[in-house]
């Protein structure tokens, strides 16, 4: 552990804030997110829809549409440089070459009127100074690498001639074409069949570990993260609420929201419960968050202090942080305890 910590992390995100402005309100989609990503590791970023996970990813890539969005503060230190301070043209060199990204919809992430080959060679031509010929050769290798049979002939195909899983494989090939140090997968498997999901995730993990690429998996699917991530960040209402190794997060969650998430999904490694326990209440309006902890109204452990002060991440164990005043008391089996009180 200690040895690992001495190495400078690949990516250091510090107090990142991305807000969206409308005439009547400000949505603090990402509000003070801080985390590290080490070289070669797989980090999960989990949370429900609208919690700011995708905005975090887009902020890292500086692809937030402006207006209405704006990155209002923080630092994204990648390989020693603050990405937020780079010029647009420098940032373009980072995208695709240093950081690859895969998006959610495999059906529309590929341009319908360009051949697979042309889309695969684009990043190579942009960043690797390859000629058309070389790029095409490399594109064939890449398709082969992501497990598409008959790769060379498929280069001439159009996206509609491929299945969803194949398209996502192509997206992975594009994202990895320039050997990036970091691959961001934003809900990359959400739109796929469960069996295909597993294949794609296996493929991503296999390739990133082979190429030494760090992987940031953004998902709302806890199962995905449990299986593939080394460490997990749990996000809620624009902030990271709990951070720790996969084992800690799943074994001994220290934030009520994480507990709620875990209790709301069925698990094979636990005795079958008759009913799943959903998190009560609804996601607060992001444009009008209450003071204090945003999860307060849905929380079984809420105390008075939660309404006044928003807790920050504090150490809850080794390499394990939770943003909760009561984190010492939080454990699984919460609802039952509470009910008896």
């Amino acid at each position: 552990m200690t040895e690992r910590q001495t190495v400078e992390p690949l990516l250091q995100v510090r107090d990142l804030k991305t807000y969206f402005y409308s005439p009547s309100s400000v949505v603090r989609a990402v509000d003070g997110v801080t985390f590290d990503l080490r070289e070669g590791e797989t980090l999960g970023l989990v949370g429900e829809s609208g919690c700011g996970k995708s905005v975090t990813a887009l902020t890292l890539m500086r692809l937030i549409p402006n207006p209405p969005g704006r990155i209002v503060g923080g630092e994204v230190i990648f390989k020693g440089r603050d990405l937020l301070k780079l010029s647009d043209s420098e940032m373009r060199k980072v995208r695709g070459r240093d950081i690859g990204m895969i998006f959610q919809e495999p059906m529309s992430s590929l341009n319908p009127v360009l051949t697979i080959g042309r889309q695969l060679t684009e990043a190579l031509e942009l960043h690797m100074n390859m000629s058309k010929r070389q790029a095409m050769d490399r594109a064939g290798e890449l398709l082969d690498m992501v497990g598409i049979p008959d790769a060379r002939t498929r280069l001439k195909d159009y996206p509609h001639q491929m299945s969803g899983g194949q398209r996502q494989r192509v997206m992975i090939a594009i994202a990895l074409s320039c050997n990036p140090k970091l691959l961001i997968a934003d809900e990359a498997t959400t739109a796929l069949d469960v069996t295909i999901q597993a294949q794609i995730l296996e493929l991503m993990q296999d390739l990133t570990s082979r190429l030494g690429t760090a992987l940031l998996i953004i998902t709302h699917n806890l199962g995905v993260v449990a299986r593939y991530a080394d460490r997990v960040n749990v996000m809620y209402a624009g902030k990271i609420r709990e951070m720790g190794s996969s084992d800690d997060i799943y074994g001994s969650p220290k934030h009520p929201y994480t507990v709620g998430l875990l209790n709301s999904v069925p698990r094979l490694d636990e005795p079958a419960k008759t009913r799943l326990a959903p998190i009560r209440g609804e996601i607060p309006n992001m444009a009008d968050l209450p003071a204090g902890c945003a999860f307060r109204d849905r929380c079984d452990w809420a105390i008075e202090r939660c309404g006044a002060e928003d807790p920050t991440l504090t150490e809850a164990g080794r390499e394990h942080w939770s943003a909760c005043w009561e984190s010492a008391k939080v454990s699984r089996r919460p609802a039952a305890q509470k009910a008896k009180v």
């Binding site: 373009r92 995208r95 998006f103 529309s108 992430s109 590929l110 341009n111 319908p112 942009l126 594009i174």
Partner: peptide, 14 residues
């Protein structure tokens, strides 16, 4: 607004 435009931006296209 299509995601392939976003994808293209994400590989560093101007």
């Amino acid at each position: 607004e299509r995601s392939y435009v976003e994808s293209a931006r994400a590989i560093g296209a101007s």
